[in-house]
């Protein structure tokens, strides 16, 4: 008998928590990006777990698309970071606040 799904969900939640905390506290944009990837993985794990529990491949399809989107997001995100870096020569997120209201 395989491991009950809720364990996986707990692990995914923990992973998501770690990712979120990482995004909120780290000041280096790239590390924040990585934490976001972490959160995405947590989500993927949840999808897969439910796919198994509900015996529905939809979960895995969703993960498939999440991956695609994540990839696109990383590409564009890093592109932005490079562009910003060109102007401000810094990746500390707090210095980039020109969009102040």
């Amino acid at each position: 008998m395989s491991i009950p799904g809720s364990w996986y969900l707990v692990v995914a939640a923990l992973l998501f928590g770690l990712g979120a905390f990482g995004v909120l506290t780290r000041r280096n944009v790239i590390v924040m990006f990585m934490s976001v990837e972490l959160m995405l993985n947590a989500v993927n794990l949840t999808f897969v777990t439910y796919a198994r529990m509900l015996n529905d491949v939809g979960g895995q399809v969703a993960v498939f698309f999440v991956l695609v989107v994540a990839a696109a997001e990383v590409v564009v995100g890093l592109g932005i970071i490079v562009a910003i870096f060109r102007h401000r020569a810094t990746v500390t997120v707090d210095d980039i606040s020109s969009l102040k209201g």
Binding site: L24, L99, K100, G101
Partner: peptide, 17 residues
């Protein structure tokens, strides 16, 4: 209302959380 738009990305994230 204006003060909320502080420009700091991290405060936006906090609001999201």
């Amino acid at each position: 209302g204006r003060k909320v738009q502080s420009g700091l990305v991290r405060s936006y994230l906090l609001i999201m959380v």
